[in-house]
Design a protein around this nucleic acid. Structure first.
Lengths: 126, 126
DNA sequence: ATTATATGAAACCAAAAGGTTTCATGTCAA
DNA sequence: TTGACATGAAACCTTTTGGTTTCATATAAT
């Protein structure tokens, strides 16, 4: 499905530098928790909790082998990030931006016509 | 410069849904705080603090006009995100991934050869 | 000159985040 | 079957985060 409605937000999941390191590490090879945590200056339990958050966001998958649990990268949820970012690419290569700024002029009106596709658009203008 | 060494991490800045909404809103037009906060179910001061965080990350720029301060999107720092994400694109369209997984086999060795370009690579394997 | 508007700073607070240590459980090895 | 290893869950603690209300200051308008 396109919107898998994950337990943890991808943006939130990648906000932590430790978790980003975990992702890059697990992209290379599947690894068990003890080995992974050997690369971090914190307890195994702490790393384990980070892994859980990543798993909740769908960014890693676990596989039990005997008494160990191996984790590996699952890049698919990063597509959401990619889509989000794609919206802003128009600000780099699109000439429309300059035009828009010009048209805007100087008025202080707060009305919004275009809004970027934001996942949680709970409250709008009332 | 390539590494502007900002006060706030971009990943951290965009982790909050409110701040993401702010970015999309400010991409359309420059706006003063009062107008912006009218679109959110929180106090003006709270919105102001979010704007400060975005500004610290370089994602918005402020411009004082008389007694009001207008904010607008500054998309440049998103390039860091784009670069980060680019690393993981190999997991989508690269056949090497399947090959790599195959070569890995089943060993439990924790040694890492390749590491993704992570900004804070403070501690390594000691 | 006085009042209203726009904003940021400060002090404060509750909840979430990121750690720790300890404990329980399941699996492997002798 | 006994002991060592791998791991997650639980309880706990401190710092950060996201919000509030109140106050101070600068500019605009009357």
């Amino acid at each position: 499905m396109a919107t898998p409605s994950r337990k943890t937000d991808v943006f939130q999941a990648i906000a932590d530098p430790t978790r980003r390191q975990l992702l890059s590490m697990l992209g290379e090879r599947e690894m068990p928790v003890t080995v992974i945590s050997g690369h971090f200056p914190m307890s195994r339990t702490a790393v384990s909790k980070h892994l859980r958050i990543l798993a909740d966001a769908g960014l890693v998958k676990e596989r039990k082998i005997g008494r160990e649990t191996r984790y590996r990268l699952e890049p698919e949820p990063l597509l959401e990030l990619k889509r989000w970012l794609a919206y802003y690419e128009r600000y780099w290569d699109n000439k429309l931006l300059a035009l828009q700024r010009f048209v805007e002029g100087d008025e202080t009106d707060g009305t919004i016509a275009l809004v970027a596709p934001e996942e949680e658009s709970t409250r709008t203008i009332d």
